[in-house]
Computed example of a mutant assay.
Amino acid sequence: MQVHFIGLGEINMFNLAIALRKKGEKVTGSDAVFDESLNAIMYEQGLEYNETGWSSDKINDGLDAVVLGASVKKDNPELVKAQKLSLPIFSYPEFVFEQSKYKTRVVIAGSKEKSTVASMILHVLEYNNVVVDYALATPNGIHLSEENDFIVIKGGDGPSSVIDPTPQFHKYQPNIALLSDIELKEGDFETYAEQYSIFVDSIVKGGSITYNDEDAEVKKRVESSENPIRKFPYITPEYQEVDGEVFLDTPDGEMPLEISGETNLRNMAGAKWICQQMGVDEVEFYEAMATFQ
Rank of each mutant, 00 (worst) to 15 (best):
F5Q: 08
F5H: 02
G9I: 02
G9Y: 00
I11E: 04
A17D: 00
A19V: 11
A19W: 13
L20M: 11
K22Y: 03
T28N: 02
G29M: 01
S30P: 07
F34M: 15
E36I: 07
E36W: 03
S37N: 15
L38P: 10
L38K: 14
L38Q: 15
N39L: 14
Y43L: 15
G46A: 12
E48Y: 02
G53C: 06
S55F: 02
S56K: 13
K58R: 14
K58T: 04
I59R: 05
N60R: 04
N60H: 14
D61V: 03
D61Q: 12
L63S: 04
V67R: 09
G69C: 08
G69S: 09
K73M: 04
K73A: 02
P77S: 14
L79T: 03
L79V: 07
Q83K: 15
I89T: 00
F90N: 09
P93E: 01
E94K: 05
F95H: 05
F95R: 01
S100G: 06
K101D: 06
Y102D: 15
Y102K: 15
A109K: 09
A109F: 12
K112Q: 06
V117Y: 14
I121V: 10
L122E: 02
E126G: 12
V131Q: 12
V132S: 12
T138I: 15
P139A: 02
I142N: 01
L144W: 04
S145W: 11
E146N: 11
E147G: 06
E147H: 09
F150L: 12
V152D: 13
K154P: 02
G155H: 11
D164Y: 08
P167S: 13
P174K: 05
I176A: 03
L178R: 08
L179G: 12
S180M: 04
L184R: 13
E190H: 06
T191A: 08
Y192V: 05
Y192S: 05
Y192W: 09
A193S: 10
S197G: 15
D201F: 03
D201L: 00
K205N: 13
K205H: 08
G207I: 04
N212H: 11
D213G: 06
E214Y: 05
D215W: 11
K219Q: 05
K220G: 07
R221Q: 15
E226N: 14
N227H: 09
P228L: 07
R230F: 05
K231H: 10
F232Y: 09
F232V: 07
P233Q: 00
Y239P: 01
Y239M: 13
G244K: 02
G244Q: 03
V246N: 10
L248D: 07
D249I: 13
D252I: 10
M255Q: 13
M255A: 13
P256W: 12
L257D: 10
E258H: 12
I259L: 05
S260Q: 09
E262P: 06
E262A: 12
R266I: 00
M268G: 09
M268W: 09
A269C: 07
A269S: 14
K272L: 08
C275D: 00
G279R: 00
V280A: 00
V280Y: 00
D281G: 05
E282A: 10
E284K: 14
E287S: 13
E287R: 15
A288T: 00
T291I: 00
Q293W: 08
